[in-house]
Nucleic acid binder design. Structure first.
Length: 608
RNA sequence: GCGCGAGUAGCUCAGCUGGAUAGAGCGUCGGCCUCCGGAGCCGAAGGUCGUGGGUUCGAAUCCCGCCUCGCGCACCA
C-alpha cells in the first residue's frame, strides 16, 4: 500500500496545548489489574475481606488478590483465583483452600450476596442486583468524566503520527495512521496524560529533490518542451496541477528559458545549474502539498499541536550538535570515506552510515536528523514519546533507539515507544482498488472521506488492531443500515436520545441515587449495566496497551446490548419506579456510548 | 537467508497481558414478531485455536523448532 510515506510534517507550532482534560478519578489501591473505578466501593470491601480471611488461613504476607470479571456471567459478578495460586505455597488442594476461604468470609462485610466455589478452585461472588446497578448512578451524576482515569498523573507524552513526506497526497495508509494516532492520543488524555500531537515533516533529503525535479519536468512539458520525469520521481496527476499553478503564476519568458536549460541538464542526468529556480520549485511544491495534507487532516478532524520541520534541525544546529555528541561518545568510525555509527553496540545487526561518502554526495543520511529530532523530544521534556508508523518502517526502530543510546545522555533504552500498523487494502465494488506506484494513483484519505464520511473512515480504521492487515470495505462503510457497524453504534446512541426526546425529559439534568435503579432486574438490563460499568477499566486497559480497537469492539457489543434492551423493554409509559430506573439506564448507556465514540473521534448524533 | 507481524467457525475478526464449556458479526438452517423510531427477535449447526515439542494446578495466550502469508533488510526516506 503505502510505500515511501511516513516521515513527518508542516510548520506553525502552537502552544503545546492539551485538550479534553478531565478531572482525574482516583484509582483503587491495587484492586484489579486495571482498577475499576466505578466499582471501587464494592471491590475494595471485598478485597479487604478476602485479605483478612486469607491471613487467618496462614497465607503468605503480600499474597496478591486478583479480582476479575468471569468470562461467563453465569459464574457471577466477580471471581478470584487465589485459592489456586496459593495451592503450591500452602501445599494444599485448591478446592480445600477455597472451601475454607468461603467459610471464613464475612459476606456482609465483603458486600456480596453470595460466594461459591467452582471449577478447579475459583471463588465466585455475586452482588445483589440492586447493588450492581447502583454503579450507573455515578455515570449519570458525572457524565463528563465517566471513563477517565489518572494513570498518567499529569505527565507529558508526545504522540507523533502521520508524518508523511510532503511529496504527495495522503493515502489510505496515512488515514489508518491518523485515526490510530489520534485515538491513542485521546486515550492517553482520558487517562491523565498531558498529550502533545506532533507531525514531523521531512522537508529535506533526496525525496524532496525528486519532487522538485518532477515538478520541473511537468512544467517543461506544459510549456511544450521535451522533458521526462527523473528516475525515482513522482508521476501523480497532482504534480501536473502544481506545475500548472506555478506556470499560471510565473510563466514569464525568463522562467521559460531557465526551464529549457534545466530540462536539458536533467535529461543528461545532471543537476541543473539554475539551482535558484529548482529551489523555488521545491519551496512551491512543498508548500502546495503541505497545504493539501493540512486540508486532508482538517477534513478528518485531526489537529496537531506541533508541526516539526526536519529543515529546522539543520538550521538551528541540532544535527551538527548531535553528530558532534555521537563522535565524542566514541561510537563512530570512518570507513570508505563515510562516517558510520556503531549501532551494532546497541542491538542493530549492522552499523549504519551517518554521513555519505563524497562519491554519494557527502550528505547526512536520514537517520541522523531522525536521531537529532528525537533528542529534541527528550529535551523538550517528553519523558515518554510514542511513534505511530507503518510496519514498513519498522527497521527504523532499532536504529533510532541505538542512536539515542549511543549519545549516552540518559535516555531510557526503550525510548521512544513505537506503535506499528500493518498495511491497508481498499475494497470497492467487490474488488481491491489497486495502487499504482508508477502512475502515482492511489486511494487518498480525501477519497475515503468523500465516499463514506469521516465517522465511518475513523471507525473502519480503528476496528482492527494495528497488528492485523486491514481491509477497508468501502461498500459496507457507506451503507446506512445495521450491517454497517458505525451506523449500528450511532443508531443505538440516537435511540437512547430518542427516549428522552419523546418523553420530554432533559437528560442533561437527570441525576440518580441507588434507590432509583433497584428496579433494573431484567436480564437484558443487567447485561447492559455490566457493559457500561466495564467502560472505565476498558479505557484504562486500552490506553495502557495503546490499542484503540478495544474501544471499537466494546462499542459494537454495548450497542448490541442497548438495541436488545430497547427492543424488549419499554421505558416511557411504565410505572413510575420502573420508568425512572430505565431512564437512568438509558442515560447511562447514552453517556457511555457517547464517551466511547468521542475517544475514537466519531460523532454521536442525537437522531439519524 | 535475517528481522518484525499474522495464521482462531464457510467468510471477516475478538479473545481484556496464563483461567472455567474458545466468542461476535455476516452467511447457512429452523421458528417468532410488526411495539418509544426504521426487519427486528429467539434457537440450531459449524473449531485438532497453522503444526510438533516444552514450561505448570491450568496454554489460543509464555518458550523452542517447523510450515504458510504479508512487510522490511540502502551511502532512499
Amino acid at each position: 500500500m503505502h510505500r515511501r510515506r511516513r516521515r513527518r510534517g508542516p510548520p506553525t507550532p502552537g502552544p503545546p496545548a492539551t485538550r479534553n482534560r478531565r478531572s482525574p478519578p482516583r484509582r483503587p489501591a491495587r484492586a484489579t489489574r486495571d482498577g475499576r473505578p466505578e466499582r471501587r466501593v464494592s471491590t475494595d470491601a471485598l478485597q479487604r475481606e478476602i485479605a483478612r480471611a486469607l491471613a487467618a488461613l496462614g497465607a503468605p504476607e503480600g499474597t496478591s488478590i486478583v479480582l476479575e470479571r468471569p468470562r461467563d456471567p453465569g459464574f457471577g459478578d466477580w471471581t478470584t483465583n487465589v485459592a489456586m495460586t496459593l495451592a503450591k505455597p500452602l501445599g494444599r488442594k485448591p478446592r480445600d483452600i477455597a472451601t475454607e476461604l468461603v467459610g471464613t468470609l464475612d459476606l456482609v462485610a465483603a458486600g456480596v450476596a453470595r460466594a461459591e466455589i467452582a471449577g478447579p478452585g475459583f471463588v465466585n461472588f455475586r452482588l445483589d442486583p440492586g447493588a450492581q446497578a447502583a454503579g450507573i448512578t455515578q455515570v449519570v451524576n458525572a457524565p463528563g468524566t465517566f471513563g477517565t482515569g489518572n494513570a498518567g498523573a499529569g505527565r507529558q507524552v508526545n504522540v507523533e503520527f502521520v508524518s508523511a513526506n510532503p511529496t504527495g497526497p495522503l493515502h489510505a495508509g496515512h488515514g489508518r495512521q491518523a485515526a490510530l494516532g489520534d485515538a491513542i492520543a485521546t486515550l492517553l488524555e482520558w487517562t491523565g496524560w498531558r498529550v502533545s500531537r506532533e507531525f514531523y515533516y521531512n522537508d529535506g533529503g533526496g525525496q524532496i529533490e525528486n519532487l522538485a525535479r518532477s515538478v520541473w519536468a511537468r512544467l517543461a512539458q506544459q510549456m511544450g518542451i521535451d522533458a521526462t520525469i527523473p528516475e525515482g520521481g513522482y508521476n501523480g496527476e497532482y504534480i501536473n496541477e502544481i506545475a500548472a499553478a506555478i506556470l499560471a503564476d510565473r510563466g514569464s519568458e525568463l522562467v521559460r528559458s531557465t526551464i529549457e536549460e534545466g530540462a536539458r541538464a536533467i535529461a543528461a542526468g545532471q543537476r541543473p545549474h539554475e539551482a535558484g529556480l529548482l529551489d523555488r520549485l521545491r519551496v512551491e511544491a512543498v508548500r502546495a502539498l503541505r497545504r493539501e495534507q493540512d486540508l486532508d487532516m482538517q477534513a478528518f478532524g485531526v489537529r496537531f499541536d506541533t508541526y516539526f520541520l526536519e529543515s529546522s534541525l539543520y538550521r538551528d544546529g541540532q544535527v551538527d550538535r548531535t553528530v558532534a555528541a555521537l563522535r565524542k561518545a566514541g561510537h563512530t568510525f570512518e570507513q570508505d570515506g563515510a562516517l558510520f555509527l556503531r549501532t551494532t553496540d546497541f542491538g542493530d545487526d549492522k552499523d549504519r552510515v551517518m554521513r555519505k561518502s563524497g562519491l554519494k554526495g557527502g550528505e547526512y543520511t536520514y537517520f541522523v536528523p531522525d536521531v537529532a529530532y528525537h533528542v529534541t523530544k527528550w529535551e523538550r521534556g517528553f519523558t515518554r514519546a510514542i511513534n505511530v508508523q507503518g510496519a514498513d518502517h519498522h527497521s527504523t526502530v532499532t536504529r533510532v533507539r541505538a542512536g539515542l543510546q549511543a549519545l549516552e545522555m540518559g535516555i531510557p533504552k526503550g525510548y521512544p515507544d513505537f506503535v506499528l500498523h500493518q498495511m491497508v487494502t481498499v475494497m470497492k465494488g467487490g474488488e481491491e482498488v489497486k495502487i499504482s506506484k508508477r502512475s502515482g494513483s492511489y486511494v487518498t484519505v480525501r477519497d475515503l472521506i468523500e465516499w463514506v464520511g469521516r465517522d465511518a473512515v475513523r471507525y473502519f480504521f480503528l476496528m482492527r488492531k494495528g497488528d492485523s492487515q486491514l481491509v477497508f470495505d468501502v461498500d459496507l462503510a457507506r451503507q446506512q443500515n445495521e450491517e454497517n457497524p458505525v451506523y449500528y453504534i450511532q443508531m443505538a446512541h440516537a435511540r437512547m436520545c430518542g427516549i428522552f426526546r419523546v418523553g420530554e425529559v432533559d437528560r442533561e439534568q437527570l441525576r440518580a441515587t441507588g434507590a432509583d435503579v433497584l428496579a433494573l432486574v431484567e436480564p437484558e438490563e443487567q447485561l447492559l449495566v455490566k457493559a457500561i460499568l466495564d467502560f472505565p477499566a476498558l479505557v484504562a486497559g486500552a490506553a495502557e496497551a495503546l490499542e484503540p480497537h478495544r474501544i471499537a469492539n466494546w462499542l459494537l457489543e454495548t450497542a448490541r446490548l442497548a438495541h436488545t434492551w430497547y427492543h424488549k423493554h419499554h421505558v416511557l409509559g411504565e410505572p413510575e419506579p420502573v420508568m425512572r430506573a430505565r431512564l437512568v439506564l438509558a442515560r447511562a448507556a447514552q453517556v457511555a456510548l457517547r464517551n466511547g465514540l468521542a475517544i475514537l473521534g466519531i460523532s454521536a448524533p442525537e437522531r439519524m
